[in-house]
Design a protein around this nucleic acid. Structure first.
Lengths: 220, 220
DNA sequence: GCCCGATAAGTGACATTGTCACTGAAGCCC
DNA sequence: GGGCTTCAGTGACAATGTCACTTATCGGGC
């Protein structure tokens, strides 16, 4: 059980005690297992979503079966895309998948509206969330429209690895990250392998020469 | 001169008279000639922007010289991208170009904040503006990542033409709309010409068979 | 009119990426 | 070990992007 989730979010931690107590009474906590869909074209929640723990991957699918990852929502962030779609009342084909087991706070729309109206700190938090997503998407557009695939893949490998040396991902999963086809990823990874920047085995990629990958990623 | 611009926007037309009168005193009106830059990486306004008349084209440039149009801001809409970037305090390389002579209302940030805090109608307007841009960008990502160029070009030709039969645009300009190279546009337009869907002359394209173009645009 | 410079458009060769139809390899369960 | 499933590799080809040009068209100056 969560003691006081309002500690967790920039937008709520700054609120006065009475407001936070009120929030604790109106919000529900939900848990979603890793791999499950959090939202999607046919599954638009009518409430607001604050991610307490875990990570959500937001991706878009084409009708030809290819996917692309738009961004990730980390713990402490809110998920504004669903709100956006509620407001715009337009169709969209993005979906959110729980990348880990997640714990989220669900705030009824009414409480959300009231909070936005009354609390400066919360309002800033929400606007910042929108802004970050807009910027994220600008970046995605730039990448997809102008980026070279080997550069993009090198970037993504480094990002996915974090501090670790190894990634657990199939070629297909990497293709879905970048919105391309598995064959393309296979080709490029083989090239990386020949240049001894990585080593591969089924479902695993070892980053052998991160500096070289970083060089590729930042060069072009 | 503009009598009462608050009539013009959904977010302000619904406001009570006193609030609107207050707005009229704090806002400035500016005019920008067609072709001029409204905002850009090195030119981030610190105020909020409401487009009273005209149209702004928001596009992103790559360092290799290619461009792509992200969306257009029409009269009666607000331009939220600059606000977003102000909030997120991140670099971005999108720029807004006046596509016609434009008249805009500039609202100081302070007045904007106050309005968002106090007025439900205005708040809804602002959120809707953000949402629309998010959705627009989702669409762009989908197009660029998964769309075929001939389909995208057919779509764009129809959109640019509107009710008219002819478009005044160079191949280079069309390439910049879609984030591709001029040669690609030239090739596809030649194909369209061979199939008698269009006729070309220097800087002009005549849409001869809109139904056929529409067929292409909606097919794939 | 005619020439000239500037911009627009066409062209062919080649690199990169996406698509398709496969084959081969690795793990898993029995 | 045998058979199943998923993952990865491969070659041919199509679509798109890049490069280095050539050719066409327009406008202005003479």
């Amino acid at each position: 059980m969560i003691a006081d989730w309002t500690e967790r979010f920039q937008g709520t931690a700054a609120l006065p005690r009475p407001v936070r107590d009120r929030l604790l009474t109106v919000a529900r906590t939900i848990e979603i297992p890793s791999g499950a869909q959090v939202f999607g074209p046919t599954n638009i929640p009518d409430s607001l979503f604050f991610l307490y723990d875990g990570r959500i991957r937001v991706s878009q699918s084409s009708d030809t079966g290819r996917d692309i990852v738009l961004y990730r929502v980390d713990a402490g962030e809110s998920c504004v895309l669903t709100t956006a779609c509620m407001l715009a009342e337009e169709a969209y084909n993005a979906e959110g998948i729980a990348e880990t087991d997640i714990t989220a706070i669900v705030l009824p729309k009414l409480a959300f509206d009231r909070l936005v109206a009354e609390e400066e700190a919360f309002r800033k938090f929400v606007f910042a969330a929108y802004s970050r997503r807009l910027i994220d998407l600008l970046r995605v557009v730039d990448d997809v429209a102008f980026g070279q695939m080997d550069v993009r893949l090198a970037e993504r490998l480094l990002a996915l690895a974090g501090d670790l040396k190894e990634i657990a991902a199939t070629h297909q999963q990497l293709a879905s990250e970048l919105g391309t086809a598995r064959e393309v990823i296979s080709r490029i990874l083989q090239d990386f392998q020949k240049r001894e920047m990585i080593a591969q085995s089924r479902g695993r990629i070892e980053l052998r020469d991160k500096p070289a990958l970083r060089g590729l990623a930042t060069s072009a």
